[in-house]
Amino acid sequence: MSSVDLKIVLVTVITIAAYTLVANIIPQVQSDVPEDIAFGADVTSEELVDAGRSLYEGAGGCLACHTEAGGARGPNLLTGHDGEGAIGERCEDRIADLDCKDYLFRALVDPGAYVVEGYPPIMPPTDRTLTTPQVWAIVAYLESLGGEVTVTGDDLAQAEEETAQPAAAPNGEQAAAPAVATDDAEAILQDLCLMCHQMGDRGTEMGPSFDEVGARLTASEIRTKILHPDQLISEGYEPLAGVMPSNFGSQLTATQLESIVQYLSALR
């Protein structure tokens, strides 16, 4: 290397070093990831149960189906189902080799595998909208209903560790299989929508009726209502806002969605 090359290298390195130095002299601030649920390993079961209750009644959206009255969509977890008492009492015996909290956690994350007999397989996996610690909080709340809370800070700490593993992240992706296996609008309506809506004399009187829906709404409005139920609430149904699951967009294939939309808009 000639002296010119050396000088060029020197000027370049000094300039770069100066900039690096300036950026390092100022005290360093890192922007950390905010914590969603502020539970440490020493969380008490009361705190967990409280958080779980508010999730059950609020953001978790559980009450939409699992009500005290029981109904066509899901078993009553709160006060008793089929004379067996609340969920905390019977969870231990639901699946032979799973204890209460493991069963509940799995049933929340992969509901399709643990459908109670007589009910449709419509429950969405909860870990798509909630973080794993939040799911554990719900488990704690359910256990507290007639049973003993066995969820501890260790479960959460473990969950934290697992989510830190990138390998565990695509967890929910396998569950993204369509909720129903048919493209036939009639069948989808029967299996999903009529759980809450009425069409003719079929279905449940909860949400707005589908009769003549095509006259009231355009196809694009119907589509929006299915994908983003909270954006357009029909008059008179404001108290029920938030009840309709907002994840049909990921539960239905595009063909299924379109076939329902076409079917409904034809109802005039």
């Binding site: 770069i16 070093a17 900039y19 690096t20 300036v22 950026a23 390092n24 100022i26 360093q28 601030v29 890192q30 922007s31 950390d32 990831v33 905010p34 989510t163 830190a164 990138p166 992240a169």
Partner: peptide, 28 residues
Amino acid sequence: HWHIWEVMRDTSPHAATPALGYAAQVIS
């Protein structure tokens, strides 16, 4: 800490945004 702002979170161990000093070293 978002891959896609308010749509997809960065769940990797590197989700935190580094301080300027570290960034300066990578830039260099």
